[in-house]
Design a protein around this nucleic acid. Structure first.
Length: 317
DNA sequence: AAGGTTTTCAACCGCGTATTA
DNA sequence: ATAATACGCGGTTGAAAACCT
């Protein structure tokens, strides 16, 4: 049995891009006779294509009632609204945009709109604010309330926050073998925190996070003044690797803060270096230089090794 | 300017559903 | 009622274009 072939002789049928001559044959035939049964059309129209290919070419490209070219803002907004209601039902969505084909809308979604929503901090699958962003924001709030030595998110837009999170993820996921163990464990814990299934308290997870940073990973990994390459979190699952350069520079006159930016993303996060708070230099040279030195590790986060419910070291075994 | 990387989008594939014999 | 055939949908691919470095 098996699948029935879509044409009489699949092996001799042409595939790939259509030539202008083929297009003309198809258009001329359909204008004269209508498409009728797609399976019979290629033979009648003198085309060495399978009927399925002809139907696709006609409906997605040659049909006279389709509009080509860039999508307008209104069209983009409508697609986003419809997608939030209908999901990946491209043909249903395209019925509301009669001049656009389902294939074109699907491509536009996958290449433009999805990315746009992600940068706005919106999960394109659910059309809701990304939970991981909320978690990171709360983590940063806690750090900020602490001793001030913590790496913290720059107060800013959702785009900046999500960029910061993606960069942190990228850092955590691109370390060496030992660090990889740390990061996968921490990622696991963060996921647990997100979906409420964590066996650890938020405080414990925060401690782990602090310990991880205190192990010097950040100061070894982020090299100020040198662009370091990290795999971008968003594209890690793709077969090809996407790298993003992380650059760090001073972002205030006294140089006690550093601003990290990423070549692929909007502004990411700032880091305050308390030891340099008093550093002032009229020429701003010393302060800048100091701000561009590796970050201080988080020695002061009081991780309690004797904690009876949890020990970070146990997790490394 | 060249070569490598990433993005875009037309076209394909397999599968589920609808229609026909 | 059932099997064969046709159609349509959504996910995926890969060549070409666009973009970097």
């Amino acid at each position: 049995m098996g699948r029935s072939p879509c044409c009489d002789d699949e092996s001799n049928v042409k595939k790939g891009p259509w030539t202008p001559e083929e297009d003309k044959k198809l258009v001329d035939y359909i204008q004269l006779h209508g498409h009728g049964r797609w399976r019979n059309l290629p033979k009648n129209a003198g085309l060495n294509r399978c009927g399925k290919s002809c139907r696709l070419r006609w409906t997605n490209y040659l049909r006279p009632d389709i509009k080509r070219g860039n999508f307008s803002d209104d069209e983009a907004r409508l697609i986003i609204r419809l997608h939030s209601a209908l999901g990946n039902k491209w043909s249903a969505i395209s019925r509301h945009l009669p001049e656009r084909t389902d294939n074109e809308i699907k491509n536009y979604w996958n290449t433009h709109l999805k990315k746009k929503l992600l940068l706005m901090g919106i999960d394109p699958a659910t059309h809701r604010r990304r939970t991981d962003l909320e978690v990171l924001t709360s983590l940063c709030d806690v750090f900020l309330a602490g001793d001030g030595k913590a790496l913290r998110l720059h107060a800013g837009t959702a785009q900046q926050h999500i960029a910061g999170f993606q960069m942190l993820q990228a850092f955590l996921q691109s370390m060496d073998a030992m660090s990889h163990h740390l990061s996968s464990t921490l990622n696991h814990q963060l996921q647990g925190l997100i979906n409420g299934s964590s066996l650890l308290t938020q405080d414990q997870i925060l401690q782990n996070f602090g310990t991880l940073c205190g192990s010097g990973i950040f100061s070894n990994t982020i090299r100020p003044c040198e662009g370091s390459s990290f795999t971008n979190y968003e594209t890690m699952t793709k077969p090809y690797s996407t790298t993003a350069d992380i650059n760090i520079s001073s972002n205030n006159r006294t140089g006690n803060s550093a601003l990290a930016s990423c070549s692929k993303l909007p502004i990411a996060f700032s880091c305050t270096v308390p030891e340099l708070m008093s550093a002032s230099d009229p020429e701003n040279k010393v302060a800048e230089k100091q701000a561009l030195t590796p970050f201080q590790p988080w020695q002061d986060l009081n991780f309690n090794e004797a904690d009876e419910d949890f020990s970070w070291k146990d997790m490394l075994e």
